[in-house]
Nucleic acid binder design. Sequence first.
DNA 1: GCCGATCCGGAACAGGTGTTCCGCTTACAT
DNA 2: ATGTAAGCGGAACACCTGTTCCGGATCGGC
Lengths: 190, 190
Amino acid sequence: MPGVRPKRADAQRNRERILVAAKEVFGEQGAEASMEEVGRVAEVGVGTLYRHFPTKQVLLGDLLAERFRLFHAEAARALESEDDPWEAFAGTLRCNAESASLDVGLQDALFRGDVSWELAAEPLAALTEAMSEIIRRGQKAGVIRSDFTVSDIPVMMCGVSSAMANCHPDGTPMDWRRHLELLLDGVNTS
Amino acid sequence: MPGVRPKRADAQRNRERILVAAKEVFGEQGAEASMEEVGRVAEVGVGTLYRHFPTKQVLLGDLLAERFRLFHAEAARALESEDDPWEAFAGTLRCNAESASLDVGLQDALFRGDVSWELAAEPLAALTEAMSEIIRRGQKAGVIRSDFTVSDIPVMMCGVSSAMANCHPDGTPMDWRRHLELLLDGVNTS
DNA sequence: GCCGATCCGGAACAGGTGTTCCGCTTACAT
DNA sequence: ATGTAAGCGGAACACCTGTTCCGGATCGGC
């Protein structure tokens, strides 16, 4: 675009550092981690945080968007190189759940509603599109129950994620992989 | 017990009012509802709240214990009067999920970790005991997959609950009943 | 090297929440 | 009726966290 001169070099560098730090901090401590903590890890003042991201929710939204882009990439990969229709479906979900489990903090943030979805809308749409195609294929091959819909996926993943983010009363972590497998068994028809 | 004279009548009445109010307020607004709000609904000062419950977490813990007692009652009922082993299992889960959905706020509280489990431990143990029996029966009848365990239930319910407590990005509520049915289909073997 | 626009730091602010404290009220045994 | 111990109300406290603000440092084109 004309007229928009690039940001100053240090500003761009800081923006990156903030995103990296945010991913780490929120990933470890959950969404209730403070902005100050993010600043500390990024080695940046809070003021700088707010210069780059108008709000905590937007910062989290950015991380969310990045995650959806990752998910989409994985779905696209499966769509292209995985021939078994069921494996394309199940594999994508497993893989994405796995990568979600690496920073549970975002789940946490989502559950608390402290995230702006605006930035994530576009990557999410792309992801949805790809998953639709995977499902269509699976149903044509008769391996996915015919009443299954893309809109079932958020529900499933929400459940799986919450299993990642929570523990049994006695403190032992929940086996979210098990949960996912049960769900997949419920979806599979073969 | 000797030596423990009963509380004053108004104190007991207030305790009840607080529990009722808490159930309503937390049920509607989630765990982040303020103590002041609970007091307002109970028509009681905050000081009175803290006279009866040392801490917000304990108040929530009490509600949780009550819920588990309900769950246990339902499980016991199924164990006694439901002859079909699968229906005993699935019916109990459906029923308890249904009653959990009536006050989602507690789920919320659990997910946030703002609840003391101590008070709930005993009712939970009873519930676990009953569910174990239901599962054993189902497995003997060959309708529940043999690798299923009681400890799978918290994971399942955690997922289902989180579907209750959350919405799709566009704001429409998630279909937690669907989620539960998928899970049940994954557990059933027949 | 110089100068202005850009950006940074972090103290201060605002708002919200759990909890305490204590003067006053109320129940109830006598 | 009355005294007293139990109970109550709610202002005040302590603390935490997102956000703002602005003097000062820094970058980058000349």
